[in-house]
Amino acid sequence: MLLEVRDLHVEFRTRDGVAKAVNGVSYGVDAGETLAVLGESGSGKSVTAQTIMGILDTPPGKVTGGQILFEGRDLLTLKEEERRKVRGAGMAMIFQDALSSLNPVLTVGDQLGEMFTVHRGMSRKDARAKAVELMDRVRIPGARERVRQYPHQFSGGMRQRIMIAMAIALEPRLVIADEPTTALDVTVQAQVMDLLAELRREYRMGLILITHDLGVVADVADRIAVMYAGRIVETAPVHDIYKAPAHPYTRGLLDSIPRLDQKGRQLYAIKGLPPSLTRIPPGCAFHPRCPMARDVCRTDVPPLYEVTDAPSERGSACHFWRECLHG
């Protein structure tokens, strides 16, 4: 396994108390595999990714437990200097907002070239040539001329391609994409997602795709992990989860998407609001919003049960996953 997150816990000290952003998350990604992490805002999906990358703000953030094994080494025990070497060459991240992630006062050529001067000790001239090559690789037309331009001279889709180019520059084994297409229009979104999927195949990278959009996930991911209130509530191969969800939250999300065959009718809506991370409900965090909740849900935190009825490897953190799967 390329990356394995084991029982990760992350907290934030805030004025309202301790916000438990990540509460025992475990997941893994193989080389060449795409894992989609799905969740609403505040579910802990981005914090987990930042912790893996080692770019979590500490303080206020604090890792209080767990392991992050990357090619067998626990990243959390490494010194900052060693982690920096892992970042870029070993793993890279693509952010949602390309405009604010790029430096506005440096040309894109300088920013792409920096990857090679810093990590590979290349001369500026060689780095520039590499930058052009990279821009070609993510199919930015007229790379030779545009390498001298600044981020604001590029359109949203092109900027996101530059972010992707930067991420794949050192051919990392793992790429984490945090809502890579959320800020883009649908026609451009489709281009960027396809590009990402093709590059992943070409380089056999592991890809963690963080998103709130069930549709985007369906097209590109192999496996999916659904997060709620800092926990993984369900994990399964993509197609199985859409066919038969084994957790009421996943089921609620799927049912609340407007679909062709249900037009005009009322949408199913999950009642209530996601919980505050400073006051996560006892027992199953989803129980106040769950249509299937019973007494045991209010007291006992459900572990990630193995879904044994399914032909593939699946897990569900619901006491009544069997009912959910078949009902």
Binding site: D213, L253, Y268, I270
Partner: peptide, 15 residues
């Protein structure tokens, strides 16, 4: 709005 909240508001508007 978040996905699970979108459906609530769409239903309200439709109503």
């Amino acid at each position: 709005l978040d996905v699970s909240i979108q459906a609530q508001v769409v239903n309200l508007l439709q109503k």
